[in-house]
């Protein structure tokens, strides 16, 4: 069982991470590099000719940086894949099959749980934005992801009506409590670039998670026959 989950996570995670990494390099990286010019002060938001800097422009190819991004994208989605495949296998333990179409829904739910829900309080941020202390944001991020995953599990699989109520509470609680916020807003990056970055990060994340869910269900079903126990 363990090797089946790990094999599934490796294959599905590498595919999703590679695809997500390539989408990231094409769609997100130009926005990020543009933002870094403001972060470093190479160009400034006010007082300069806005027409010069309105376009993201062609991002320069930095092979080492881009390959590292691809590698880490694959590592992150293998990590997510391990959790996703283990939870899928847990359902299969209850004699529930997961079709590839259902896998797609698992993937989209995963995207909402680890990307969109924490992003509701801590939007994907361009370099240089002001933010609260890293530790407090990491704790809030982790708690939000965990609460959302439990809520989705209750909605999807619990038969007790009270579970729906509990799920709603779990979904809302992190956002009612609220994400840690910075004391001052001092970001040098224009809001147009920041919002464009957040939207692109969400889009690429959703596509990657859809692929992760789809391939996780596929590989898990493919390797089911290999299981000896």
């Amino acid at each position: 069982m363990f090797s089946r989950v790990v094999t599934t996570a490796l294959f599905a995670g590498c595919i999703a991470g590679l695809l997500g990494g390539l989408l990231q390099l094409y769609f997100v990286q130009p926005v990020l590099l543009h933002a870094e010019l403001y972060e470093s002060g190479t160009i400034t938001h006010f007082g300069s000719d806005p027409m010069t800097h309105a376009s993201h422009g062609d991002s320069e190819l930095d092979l080492t940086r881009d390959l590292l991004s691809l590698g880490f994208s694959m590592a992150i989605y293998v990590g997510y894949g391990l959790i996703l495949a283990a939870l899928m296998a847990l359902r299969q333990e209850s004699n529930q099959t997961i079709s590839i179409r259902q896998g797609l829904i698992w993937g989209l739910a995963g995207f909402i749980a680890v990307h969109f829900a924490p992003g509701f309080g801590l939007p994907p941020e361009v370099p240089g934005v002001a933010s609260a202390s890293l530790e407090s944001r990491q704790i809030w991020w982790g708690a939000t992801v965990l609460a959302t995953i439990i809520a989705f599990w209750l909605i999807a699989f619990s038969k007790a009506p009270i579970a729906f109520g509990l799920a709603v509470v779990l979904l809302l609680a992190p956002h009612v409590i609220g994400a840690p916020e910075p004391d001052m807003l001092i970001g040098p990056v224009p809001p147009e670039i920041a919002s464009h970055f957040a939207a692109r990060a969400f889009g690429v994340g959703m596509a990657s998670w859809a692929v992760l869910g789809l391939f996780s269900s596929y590989f898990l079903a493919t390797h089911a026959a290999d299981d000896v126990d």
């Binding site: 990231q24 990020l32 991004s69 880490f72 994208s73 992150i76 990590g79 680890v114 994907p124 990060a201």
Partner: peptide, 27 residues
């Protein structure tokens, strides 16, 4: 895996994973 690739703050690791962390919404 996620703690190392997404959250660990060693300067080398942070520098290498920087762009992906931003794009995947990690703090």
């Amino acid at each position: 895996v996620l703690a190392v690739a997404g959250h660990a703050q060693s300067p080398t690791l942070h520098g290498a994973a920087h762009d992906t962390r931003h794009a995947t919404g990690f703090p």
